[in-house]
Simulated assay, not measured.
Amino acid sequence: MLSTIATGSAIVVYGPISDNAGGIVEMAGMSHRIRERTDALDAASNATATIGNGFAMGSVALVSLALFGVFVSCAGISTVDILNPMALIGGIVIVLELDG
């Protein structure tokens, strides 16, 4: 999952950069054609931000699954039954640790 961090960061950072470029063009009083181009880039950045968020959610899901596996191993649980209070609490703790 660490190999996707650079790609995910680049995708997420693209949005604010293109948005700021549009603002600079507008404040500088540049041609309307240039503003149209930066608006197109800004629209594309909205899609890339969504993709970047998808990468982030996917990595969190995989890491939480791996940490849940470690919890099951360390707790000595032979079968994973999500209705078991210990397994449920362990899963919740893992998700809260990743979120916080």
Rank of each mutant, 00 (worst) to 15 (best):
L62E: 15
G76N: 06
G52L: 00
D19Y: 04
G23R: 00
V95C: 11
T48Q: 05
G90C: 01
N20D: 06
G76D: 03
M1W: 10
L98H: 05
I51D: 07
N53G: 11
G76K: 02
I51R: 06
D19H: 10
S18C: 03
G90A: 03
C74Q: 15
E26R: 13
I24A: 14
A61K: 15
A49Y: 13
F71N: 02
A61G: 07
A61E: 15
S64M: 12
S78K: 14
I11K: 09
T38G: 01
L88C: 15
F55Y: 14
A10F: 07
L83P: 02
G22C: 04
G22D: 04
I77C: 02
S31Q: 09
D42K: 08
T50I: 10
D81Y: 06
F55C: 03
I77Y: 04
V12N: 08
E97D: 07
V95K: 06
V12R: 13
M30R: 11
V63A: 14
I11P: 01
I92F: 02
A56C: 07
G69D: 13
L96Y: 07
G54W: 04
E26V: 01
D81Q: 05
I94P: 02
F55Q: 09
T79H: 15
S64D: 09
L83E: 11
A10Q: 08
V25G: 06
G58A: 14
V93A: 12
D81C: 04
T7M: 07
A49M: 13
A43I: 05
S31K: 10
S45Q: 02
V93F: 07
G91L: 01
R37A: 04
L67E: 15
G29S: 02
A61C: 03
R37V: 09
N84F: 00
L65T: 12
A21C: 07
L88W: 08
S3H: 10
M30F: 15
G52P: 00
S78E: 14
S45K: 00
D39G: 05
G100L: 05
G100S: 03
M30Q: 15
C74V: 09
